[in-house]
């Protein structure tokens, strides 16, 4: 039996209103399913006591919640001004080359999704790349092959 339902009940209890558990519940559902498939949204809705439409409405507002399949790994290159000024675009392009995909796509083997992202709050350590939601700072194009290698082998 899945404990997801029970976990969501526990999360609800932390807040004055059950609805506040929506983001944590969506995040958790995404961790379980890889992305927020219609079934994941339904499961989330049942646990929250909301409608699946409500869950989708909320999820689709936020960049970190995915309504379409994504790779097992997520590589996000900040291309906002501070990073762009010191070469973020070149880092992004190097990732495209190494992964053989365009930004916004997922590699054919379903391993890695690459996308540009808005400012990650690390402007002084540009270029910032978020790899599976952990920041790599001062990334230069020449650092990219090693990162890709790490993702491909480390799994």
């Amino acid at each position: 039996m899945s404990t997801y339902y029970d976990e969501v009940q526990e999360i609800k209890a932390r807040y004055p209103n059950w609805r506040s558990a929506t983001l944590p519940a969506l995040r958790l559902a995404q961790e379980h399913h890889g992305y927020l498939s219609p079934d994941a949204l339904r499961e989330c809705a049942e646990a929250l006591g909301a409608t699946p439409a409500f869950c989708e409405a909320v999820a689709s507002f936020y960049d970190m919640l995915h309504l379409a399949p994504v790779g097992r790994h997520m590589v996000e290159v900040c291309t906002n001004v501070s990073c762009a000024l010191v070469g973020a675009q070149q880092v992004l392009e190097r990732f495209e080359e190494e992964l053989g995909i365009r930004a916004g796509e997922t590699s054919g083997d379903g391993e890695v999704t690459l996308r540009p992202i808005e400012c990650l709050g690390g402007c002084g350590w540009a270029t910032v790349v978020s790899v599976d939601h952990h920041y790599r700072t001062h990334v230069k194009p020449e650092d990219v092959p090693a990162i890709v290698q790490e993702l491909r082998s480390g799994g």
Partner: peptide
């Protein structure tokens, strides 16, 4: 210019499928 042709998220991703 270092800001030439920088790819912004809005150009590649939408919020839902």
């Amino acid at each position: 210019s270092p800001l030439h042709d920088v790819l912004a998220p809005v150009a590649v991703h939408t919020h839902s499928a």
